[in-house]
Design a protein around this nucleic acid. Structure first.
Lengths: 259, 259
DNA sequence: TATCGTTATATAGTTTAAAACATAAGGACC
DNA sequence: GGTCCTTATGTTTTAAACTATATAACGATA
C-alpha cells in the first residue's frame, strides 16, 4: 500500500508549478530551447509553449527569457530567478516526499494500526537539529543507548526509551535527526572532566547577550552549528570570544532523535 | 501562493482511495444506495458503480455490501471495515493537510525565504506529546516564557528561545504541541515544594520496572497521559502503586513546543 | 537577399475520460 | 404476475486535453 500525492504550487488560484512543468523547465535549461525541450520531455511544442507562457505571466518576475530570430533562430533560457524557483521547488518536494514516505511507513490503513501516530509534521522549538548516522543501538529493558556520528565525525550518545527506538524503527547505519534544546548545551573553555557526557570541540562563531543570558553560536565542523544559551554570569567567567576554541557538552538524556 | 496536493492511496499500483471516492463512500453511507449517492456527489451512476467495484475488488475485505432486488430494489451499505477505512483515510488526510499548511506558511517560493526550514515532518523520540493552548507569551531578550493550558485545564510553563517563538509564530490562543522526554518527568507522592516547576496532579495508571529503571504511566485527566522514566531506587522509596495519586514535575527548560 | 532554426499562433485531428442513455436482471411485496 | 427501485452492464455522446500540422515573424549570418 502506497501513498502518492503530486505536489502543485498555485498562484492566484491557478496551477503554477507542477511536476510536468518542472521537468519541462529542467529540459529547457539543458537544451536551450522550448522546441528541443518539448521533444525531450516529451510533449507537444504547443503545450510546452503554453506552459512556459502561463508560468511566465503568473510569475511576478520572468522565469525564462525567450528570444526569436538570430543565428540559431533564437532560443529560451532560464533566468537566475527561474533557477532559484527550481531549487526551491525541489526543496519543497523533498520535504513532501519525506513526509509521505514516513506516513506510508507508519500506516497500515487496512488494519488501522496507525492510530499511534503523533503529529507527524511538527516544526519544533529546539534550535539544535542536525543529521547524524546511527553507529550502534544498545537496548536495555526500558532505555536504549544510541551512538551517533555527526558529519564532522564527532560522536554523540543519546539515551531514549526502548519504546521510542521501536516506534521510530531506529537501526544501525540509518540517518536520523539529532535534536536538543539550546539550553541543554553546556560550555567550557577547557576539556573539563566535569562535563563528561557528549563532549564536542568547536569554535565560537558569535555571541549575543541580553541582561541575563547569552546565546553562543558554535561551529563544530562540516557546516554543523550548535546554539547554546547560558547565563551571562557563566559566560563572563569564561572570557569567551568569537574565534576561540570551546568545548561543548550535552547530557545524553537531553538528546532526542527524530526521523 | 498556495500548495495543493491531492492525496491518493494506491494498492498494487492501482489508485485505491482518492478524494472523490471517499466523498462517494460518505454519500453512500448517508443515502444507502449507489444511485442516490451518485446524484448527491454528483457523478454519473456508472462512474460511481465502477469506483465502488474497483475499490471492493482491490480491498482484501469488502468495503461495501451491495444487494439487488427486494422491497426497495436493494441498496448498498458500508461495512464496518469500510467505515474504519474512512476514518483512517480522514486521519491521513488530516496529517497531510496540516503538513501542507505548515509548509505553505513557511514558504515564500518567490523570494526563497524558506531556506531555514528544518526537517518539517519529523517523528520524535520524545514519548510525551500533547496538545495545549497558548495562554500567554512573555518575551525577554533571548528567551521567552510561554504559559500553556492542557485539556484538563492544568497549566504548564515552557521556556524556549525567542528565536523559536518567532520561527514557529507562536501566539496567544493558538494550539501547539507540548513535547518533553519521559526522563524529564520527576515524580513525588506529595505536593513537594522541592519540585516547584510545572507541578501537575495525576493518577498512577501502570508501572513497569527493569533492573535499573521504572517506567510510570500517569493519567493527568482529559485523556492526557504522561510517561515518566525514573530510577528504580527512587520509585522504591516512594511506595507507589497503580491507582495512587501522584505529583508530576517537569522543568520549564525541558519543555519544547511543536507546531 | 536567401538561409536557418527558433518563437509565436492558429487550426484540424486524436485520444481520453466522463457523462448520458439504454436495458437486463434481481427480489420483496402487493 | 405485475410493481418498484435498485444493481449490473452495455453503447453512444460529449467535452476536454493533448497532438499534429501548418504558417508567419524574427533576426543574425553568410
Amino acid at each position: 500500500m502506497e501513498l502518492s500525492s503530486p505536489l502543485t504550487l498555485e498562484m492566484l488560484g491557478q496551477p503554477f508549478l507542477l511536476e510536468k512543468r518542472i521537468s519541462l523547465l529542467h529540459a529547457i535549461e539543458e537544451q536551450g530551447s522550448i522546441s528541443k525541450a518539448a521533444k525531450a520531455v516529451p510533449m507537444s511544442y504547443k503545450s510546452a509553449w503554453e506552459a512556459v507562457d502561463t508560468m511566465n505571466s503568473l510569475s511576478s518576475e520572468p522565469i525564462v527569457c525567450r528570444e526569436t530570430g538570430g543565428k540559431d533562430g533564437g532560443g529560451t533560457t532560464i533566468t537566475a530567478y527561474g533557477k532559484q524557483l527550481l531549487e526551491n521547488y525541489a526543496m519543497l518536494k523533498r520535504e513532501h516526499t519525506h513526509f509521505l514516505k514516513r506516513l506510508s511507513e507508519l500506516t497500515d490503513i487496512q488494519s488501522g494500526t496507525f492510530k499511534t501516530i503523533e503529529r507527524l509534521s511538527l516544526q519544533i522549538s529546539a534550535r539544535n537539529q542536525m543529521r547524524a548516522k546511527v553507529v550502534s543501538v544498545v537496548c536495555e529493558d526500558l532505555n536504549a543507548k544510541i551512538h551517533l556520528e555527526l558529519k564532522s565525525g564527532q560522536v554523540l550518545v543519546s539515551v531514549i526509551t526502548k519504546e521510542a527506538v521501536e516506534n521510530l524503527h531506529i537501526e544501525k547505519d540509518q540517518y536520523v535527526t539529532v535534536i536538543f534544546k539550546s539550553s541543554a548545551v553546556l560550555l567550557s573553555e577547557v576539556s573539563d572532566e566535569k562535563f563528561e557526557e557528549n563532549r564536542l570541540e568547536g569554535i565560537v562563531e558569535k555571541i549575543d547577550t541580553d541582561l541575563e543570558n547569552a546565546k553562543v553560536l558554535i561551529d563544530i565542523g562540516s557546516h554543523d552549528k550548535i546554539v547554546s544559551v547560558i547565563s551571562k554570569e557563566i559566560l563572563e567567567n569564561m572570557k569567551m570570544e568569537a574565534g576561540n576554541p570551546v568545548w561543548v557538552s550535552i547530557k545524553e538524556n537531553n538528546i532526542m532523535l527524530g526521523k
